[in-house]
Design a protein around this nucleic acid. Structure first.
Lengths: 257, 257
DNA sequence: ATAAGTGTACTACCATGCAAGTTAACCGGG
DNA sequence: CCCGGTTAACTTGCATGGTAGTACACTTAT
């Protein structure tokens, strides 16, 4: 039993959730790829129980499809679900940013400036993950400013499906620069207390994201919803080789270690 | 091993989730009540495994608090969370009803009329559960009309915390009549294609609900957030006696049935 | 050669057993 | 009477074993 997983003081199942969720969202595990309880358990050096518990949680997050007695597969990116996620995010964030503009104190303004400044420093050298994290930080902080920190969790959970789509290819430099510019304009309006301008800037920002969603959806039709599951072994085998986690499956030949 | 649980073709764990979720939301299991994996498993005639998997899902829905090696307790009703749930619901439903008014076809109008008519028939004889179900049906259908059926799931999940609060005492007749009246005004506006009127009526309707929330929160302070968990055995014992599910715990005296 | 039948290797599901940790009651000494 | 130490009965977390069901490959009959 190795100590491959040791981050903080949560259960093993929760750590596996975080691990697999990250791999699925980042696209390392692609839609349709098969994940077996046994296999994950062996690779992580734990028993099947916490893995199974993690699978159930991922299913509830619409990231995994569990077919009883057949297998567990990374869920396809449901385009309708992506659209609904965007709808929810847009609706909530637009209202939130308007409220934030009316409630922004001096301390909030300082923090907002710091957040976007940090994001700008990440423009060149920063990794994609760090940039995304800084991106989220601003949106999340608006939720805090208007006194509703838990609302961000709902938005964030819905946003996962959007993030999966976005992670299909890395953002180019011009896109990242536009994002930071958008953020700076939004923060300017919020700090200035101009709710209408804030809502307008946020709307503009999110619409750009929506355009990207549509482009990516057309670019990667294979990962989208229509895909059937148990059939089409060829497609699954192709998907499996993307991540090393599902690289080789055991066969009758190499049963013993 | 009895066949106490047999509804449809899902896993045992999922049925336990539905069962316990219902008991918690309806207030049969009150905040602070202890639920042990062993006890539930025995009462349902299943092993601890599916019960445990159900507990984890309920934890993710903020309905259960699992303290490792200590116990699992029905979560208190977090007032901040209730407020955030209301905020989300209000924001989403107001936008949705405006869109529904613009998109309402003749077929939708007929179904809306049918839904409120049915709710009115339930005004006198109907059970509380049936009335609530009919209530939800209208709100859910608005989500369908504007082509975003999945958004209702998010609203509904958030609404659980509000429902817990509401179920603390049954609605009196005048409240139910006011609700149906509200619904009829909303439907009138939507069917008439008047988005502004629909938004106004929905806002009015939801504000009433919010007033009720505040009243109930003051009425039942014991179920609210501040409650500590492992301490105050007296409060827990009191809570336990509410539902027969947790009526008597085994002690050293009555081990055998 | 094609189609139906059979076996085998997988899958997720659930039952059970053990371990680590917490709590509360009990008991003896101050 | 009050306080500290011990023990016993709980709790959840994790490991493991057995079972029903599925799918694929092989065999056999047509």
């Amino acid at each position: 039993m190795a100590g491959q997983i040791d981050l903080d003081r949560t259960t093993v199942a929760d750590e596996i959730v975080a691990l697999l969720r990250d791999r699925i969202v980042r696209g390392e595990l692609t839609p349709g790829a098969q994940l077996s309880e046994n296999e994950i358990a062996q690779q992580l050096g734990v028993s099947r129980t916490p893995v199974r518990e993690a699978f159930i949680q991922l299913r509830e997050q619409s990231l995994l499809r569990i077919l009883p007695q057949r297998g567990s597969f990374v869920a396809p990116i449901n385009l309708g679900q992506v659209e609904d996620s965007y709808f929810l995010r847009e609706t909530m964030e637009i209202r939130i940013v308007g409220l934030a503009a009316k409630n922004c104190k001096a301390k909030n303004a300082d923090r907002l400036r710091a957040i976007v400044n940090r994001q700008r420093t990440l423009l060149d050298g920063g990794s994609d993950a760090a940039f995304v994290k800084a991106d989220d930080a601003m949106h999340r902080y608006f939720s805090e400013i208007c006194g509703r920190p838990r609302v961000w969790k709902v938005i964030s959970d819905a946003k996962v499906q959007i993030d999966r789509l976005r992670c299909l290819n890395a953002q180019d430099q011009s896109t990242r620069e536009r994002i930071v510019g958008d953020h700076e304009r939004i923060v300017d309006a919020v700090v200035g207390g101009d709710a209408d301008a804030a809502v307008g800037a946020m709307t503009h920002h999110l619409r750009h994201i929506h355009k990207n969603i549509e482009r990516l959806a057309q670019q990667f039709p294979g990962y989208m919803d229509g895909q059937k599951f148990p059939s089409s072994r060829a497609a699954e085998a192709r998907a499996q080789r993307v991540g090393d986690m599902t690289a080789r499956r055991r066969t009758a030949d190499n049963n013993q270690p």
